[in-house]
Structure formats: C-alpha cells, structure tokens
Simulated scan of single mutants.
Amino acid sequence: MDRIETGLNLIGDCQLAKIYDRESAAEWLCEGYQDIQVWVSGGQERFYVSFGAAADEEPAAFQTLEPRNQPGERVEWVLEDGQPVATILRWFTQVQEGLKRTSIYRGEVLVVTQLGEGQTCHIGYIDALATQNPYELARDTARLLAGIWDCQQAPKLLGRGGRSLGF
C-alpha cells in the first residue's frame, strides 16, 4: 500500500463554505487527493471531517470524538493500486481531568476513515500518545478493514490507552 499526504489548514488550504452564527460554527471545503473533496464542519468544541463528492451526507459527517477536538493539518491518504481507500488524520483533543475545569489533558488521536460512496466512516481510533508506532497501526487498520467495514458499527479502539479519547 502506498500513501500520500495533503494539507488541511482551514485558513490556508480550504474555502469557507458556510457560517453558523448561532453555534459559532462553520463549514469548510478543502482540496484533497485526486479531486476528492474534504469537508470540515465545526466550531469551538468539536469538529467533523468527511470525504467525497457528497461528504456532508456520508456517515463520517456525523462522527466526531467525544472530547473537545480539532483536526490536524495533514491528511494521509492510504492507496491501494493507486486508488485512495482510507485516510489517517491526527486529531487533537482536550480532556478535562478531575473536577477542576482548569486541569486539561491534551491528547492526540489518529482517526482512520474508510472511503467509499455511502461508506465513508470512521473505522478506527488510536491514542497516538499511548501507542507505540501509532501510524503503523493505523496503516495496518486501513489495509485490513477499509472497504469491508460496516459503517453501522462503532469504530474500533486500537492500540494502548484511551486517555486521549476521554477514558
């Protein structure tokens, strides 16, 4: 399996598509790989990222991490025979620890997303700070599960830990 990276800087790489004043949220459209659109929606607390021509209607458009989060600025596209089958995106999370609102754990999660019309969804979560070689595990997950994952299932928690995911 080959892979390639593209940028996902909402300010520099993407076009602001819509603003939701009441929720202090917005939607962005970003250029991906081989004309595959990257759709990002979110605001102050949580973001959603999906891919494809109808990205905002795919299951991934309704999936996010439980803690406060924001996506990283690089998308890794996992290719099979030159065609993208999955993406790996590092998300940054903020998990409140204990009763003090000022005590925040800053986590990192690799989200593996399967690509396919009507089947673009999260298939795996990896706590990138607790797992040794998290990208290797993410690539193995993409190679083994992309294209066969049932989007009705919850994404798999892979690797070690889960603190970055809030547990």
Rank of each mutant, 00 (worst) to 15 (best):
L165R: 12
T64I: 02
V109T: 08
W77I: 03
G107Y: 09
D127Q: 04
I148R: 13
Y33D: 01
N133Y: 12
A60L: 06
Q132H: 12
A53G: 03
M1I: 13
T93F: 05
E108F: 04
Q94A: 14
A130H: 06
I148Y: 10
G107V: 08
E58F: 00
W91D: 00
E73L: 06
T131W: 09
C14G: 11
A154M: 11
D127W: 03
Y125M: 09
T64G: 04
A25D: 03
A130W: 01
G161L: 08
Y125I: 02
G124A: 13
A130S: 14
E108H: 07
P155T: 05
A25H: 02
G7D: 10
G147Q: 06
E117D: 14
V95N: 09
S41P: 00
R139D: 05
V111N: 00
E76C: 11
Q96F: 06
E66A: 14
F51Q: 04
E76F: 05
L110E: 08
F62P: 00
L157Q: 13
L115W: 01
L157P: 05
Q153A: 15
C30D: 11
G161S: 13
L10C: 07
F47Y: 15
A17Q: 13
A146E: 10
D13L: 09
R101F: 14
R139H: 14
C30W: 04
C14A: 11
R90Y: 06
G147T: 01
R101D: 13
A86K: 07
G72K: 10
D140N: 15
K156S: 14
T93P: 05
D127K: 08
Y125E: 02
G7V: 09
Q70N: 10
L65F: 01
G82T: 06
F47D: 08
G116Q: 01
N133D: 15
Y33P: 00
W149L: 02
Q34Y: 03
Y48C: 02
F92L: 11
L145P: 01
A142L: 08
A53P: 05
L29V: 07
L129H: 10
D140V: 08
F92P: 03
L129D: 10
Q153E: 14
A86T: 02
L16N: 05
A61Q: 04
G98M: 04
V111W: 05
C14W: 03
C14N: 06
L115Q: 00
L8I: 04
W91H: 07
V95P: 09
Y135Q: 13
L144H: 10
S24A: 11
D2C: 01
A130L: 11
F62T: 07
E23A: 14
R139I: 09
